[in-house]
Nucleic acid binder design. Structure first.
Lengths: 229, 229
DNA sequence: GCAAAAGTGTTGATCTTACACCCATGA
DNA sequence: TCATGGGTGTAAGATCAACACTTTTGC
């Protein structure tokens, strides 16, 4: 009935797929930071940031630590994605990877990059143009992107990619980048204004056009319904 | 940057929340099998079926093994739920639990119970009336129930709880049990008939009323959209 | 015939989508 | 005054919920 004993030869890693929307020459793009591996296996190839689970840290803490090591930033959203445990994921050892996905405010990413410079061995890539990846990380990223797009479709999660205050057009731009399709401005406005998710401020963003009202997230409303967890 | 070394003191368990709809004195109920613990900690208390992850089995294989040990049946649906890894989940050791949830065809459960009898130390409970549970298993079950209800709302997953052939009323009954609310028969019929998910057979179920056509799942359609995974 | 469940039709409410159109600003 | 994006209005279409009604069986 019960299993005989524990298996000391299985190790636990925690990795995180970190998303941010960044402005490039090709317009805004959904991007993800990768780390160049400094040891075998897959030496020199790109991989998701991650590390071994410490004995005295929770899974989410480990993901947060990983994220801080990679970007020196705290995520505006962090959620477990999936746990990958096929026996042949890693050529040497048996590794079970608990993978998280995170959203980072794009303004903070830019600011941090400007002041501290890019961390060693870390580089941001558009999710549409990734290099060859170590392990099963391409598969993992595909799944994370699918989850992000899916969740963006039925929640206000994409607001976590923007600063505290933003215009509706900026928020719509984030959704368009994440979902990869154009949205009708007027319908987008109605949808958001009806949802209680945003609160209007008295500030406006000026530019070569009519000023646009700035909004904030409604802190009373969760960005995503996660259920009882 | 990178973490120093692996942590050999974290063990990996795989548990499964198994659902089936069973007919009781109180009508149909959503039920779940639990196992009485035969060792410390929580000796004598009820817990989710599970065991340690074997060094040469994948996560899903381990969940399937668990399930077979508990019910001697293969699930009609098996999906990863979540991985729980708080440092104080277990009083003694550090345990990370990869939890799956499963659906079992109710007819097979009844048949198996009738022929082989109930396995040792296993008992089915209605999810609405669970005993006191070991570890954080109450929390886990709450989450699994939420996921099942949620998924039932936007997919055809509940069909996995029924035999190959079933009437629309039987399928509706399953949905009503899972979701905990009544559904309009005519609207339910239209919804399902329009969805391509079911194929009508030429067989009918007779009774003290007009015979009802039997349906099968459409094998070409997935019971649930899971994305690229 | 009657009860009970199968199955059909209809209607109004609501949500989605497309798109026309006015408004406010910088240049 | 013109270009640009901000913001409002509206109507067609799709979807959904409620419920009246007809059909087919066993008794």
């Amino acid at each position: 009935m019960s299993v005989t004993s524990a298996s000391p030869d299985v190790r636990i890693a925690v990795s995180t797929a970190i998303f941010s929307v960044r402005t490039t020459d090709d317009g805004d793009q959904l991007m993800i930071p990768l780390v160049r591996r400094t040891r075998e296996p897959f030496l020199g190839q790109w991989a998701l940031p991650g590390g071994w689970l410490g004995g005295s840290e929770g899974l989410e803490d480990a993901a947060g630590r990983t994220l801080a090591e990679t970007t020196a930033l705290a995520p505006s959203w962090l959620e477990q994605l999936y746990t990958f445990g096929d026996i042949d994921r890693s050529p040497d050892a048996r590794v079970v990877s608990v993978v998280y996905w995170a959203l980072l405010r794009s303004d903070l990413v830019e600011a941090q990059r400007a002041t501290a410079g890019a961390p060693e061995n870390v580089e941001w890539f558009p999710v549409e143009a990734l290099p060859e990846l170590a392990f099963d990380h391409q598969h993992i990223i595909d799944y994370a992107v699918w989850r992000l797009r899916n969740k963006a479709g039925y929640s206000r999660i994409a607001a976590a990619l923007l600063p505290d205050e933003f215009t509706l057009a900026e928020l719509r731009g984030v959704y368009e980048t994440v979902l990869g399709k154009r949205l009708d401005p007027s319908n987008f406005r109605r949808l958001l204004e009806g949802s209680e998710a945003l609160v209007p401020t008295e500030a406006f963003r000026t530019g070569p056009h009519r000023p646009a009202r700035l909004f904030q997230y409604n802190a009373d409303i969760d960005l995503a319904e996660l259920g009882p967890i």
